[in-house]
Write a protein that binds this DNA or RNA. Sequence first.
RNA 1: GACCCUAUCGUCUAGCGGUUAGGACACUGCCCUUUCACGGCGGUAGCAGGGGUUCGAGUCCCCUUAGGGUCGCCA
Length: 446
Amino acid sequence: MNVRVRFAPSPTGFLHIGGARTALFNWLYARHTGGTFVLRVEDTDVARNTQQATDIILDGLRWLGLDWDEGPVTSDPKGPSKGDCGPYYQSQRKEFYARHVRELIDKGCAYSSEGAIKFRMQREAVIISDLVVGEVRRELTDREQVDPDFVIVRSDGEPVFHLVNVLDDMDMKITHVIRGEDHLSNTAKHIALFKAFGVEPPQYAHIPLILNPDGTKMSKRDQGASLQSYIDDGYAPDAVINYLCLLGWSPKENREKLPIQEIIQLFDLPQVLRHNARFDIDKLHWLDGEYIREMCAERFRDLGVQALARAGFNIGNYSPEYITAAMATCNGKIKRFGDLAAYGGFYFTEEVKLDSAVIATDFTPESKARLAVLRNAYAQLADFTAPLLETTLKSVAKEQLKIKPGLLIHPTRMALTGSTVGPSLYHLIEILGKGRTLKRLDVALT
RNA sequence: GACCCUAUCGUCUAGCGGUUAGGACACUGCCCUUUCACGGCGGUAGCAGGGGUUCGAGUCCCCUUAGGGUCGCCA
């Protein structure tokens, strides 16, 4: 059987991290089985859905590297698409829905009620055979006992989610519906709808939800709910993907970090866990650091430059060689690119900001006197390279000042970078160059 | 209120009747070290509770409790 799965987001203006994982699991299953990954945009709510909102979805999926085999090419509902089951925007499928609603009415499966059209739902329990959860016998709730029928077309003529979702899955020949567990109860309605159309329902796989760290449902407004926040904080997409895979699924054998190709190979639906998982930002942070550390110098530099540009640095003012060298000293030291500005931003600003508290503690008259000695020693160096900078500093400390190098190292770092943490001191000085180094030392000495 | 799902360290998980209950993140002790980070060696911490089944239960069954989801003219 040719597997066909789909991700069917509604353009609400942001891509939920849980939605991103649903997309990921669909994508993984498609890639694992050699099937087809379809993207369908459920833009039935005209008032709320804008092209801009759709771009957020498309760009988010692209950022994650989740390419779709069928679906829209642009955020324009009337624009081009790939695949034979289009249009892939629900706003463009009105005729199709209307036709099938008539079919339901003709069959006696649906009827008008107060201007809306309702589906005649069965009263018996529905058996849902789920690849993840197992067999579920879904009984009617007390309210449903009173009226099991549900609206499929609103009184304003707009078809509702349950109907269009089923109709499109049917039309797009979706074989496996992989979605959040919040849809499990609704699946009874969907199965009944499929039956009414005389079509065999797809296989279902309801995956557990991603919860907040405190165990509550992660809603739009919660911290970290939007994929955009991870993009903004400078996480690497492959790290985010890897982390998301670890929520509700395990590669076993005590493995945590593994390449996407291997995940594709190992991933399968029956092994997906049944219980919800809390989002652990600390672990993502760690994983991201692992990915960043293994980046080649070029990728690190390029992503670093992007992050600094986002943070407002004018890196265009510096030479490519300078940028490359500066970035090389930060490579492997940060855990996410959002931290780069604080870590290596001093390379790209002409004035180091020293707060008054630091000046009071680090630049006492005593330490200033020591710094002045170092400044003069450095001023006489013709060769401003790391090994010489190191031996010079150490000899100034030990032989001239008779102190431990650390007492000189720390104020020097503070004067040059404005921070107690940062890249290797001597390499940083070499890159900064004699001009900037002396200038910054002078500023600290005043 | 009803219906559905779920339950191993704080968190993510391995475990699929017999284990000293393993790993990772986080936290933490020591070592390394010019900072930070990395790395190395340790440590704290878990089977929600109660009944069964069984020679034997984290693993199977039931109940309770707790958490999550659903019951919309939202998706």
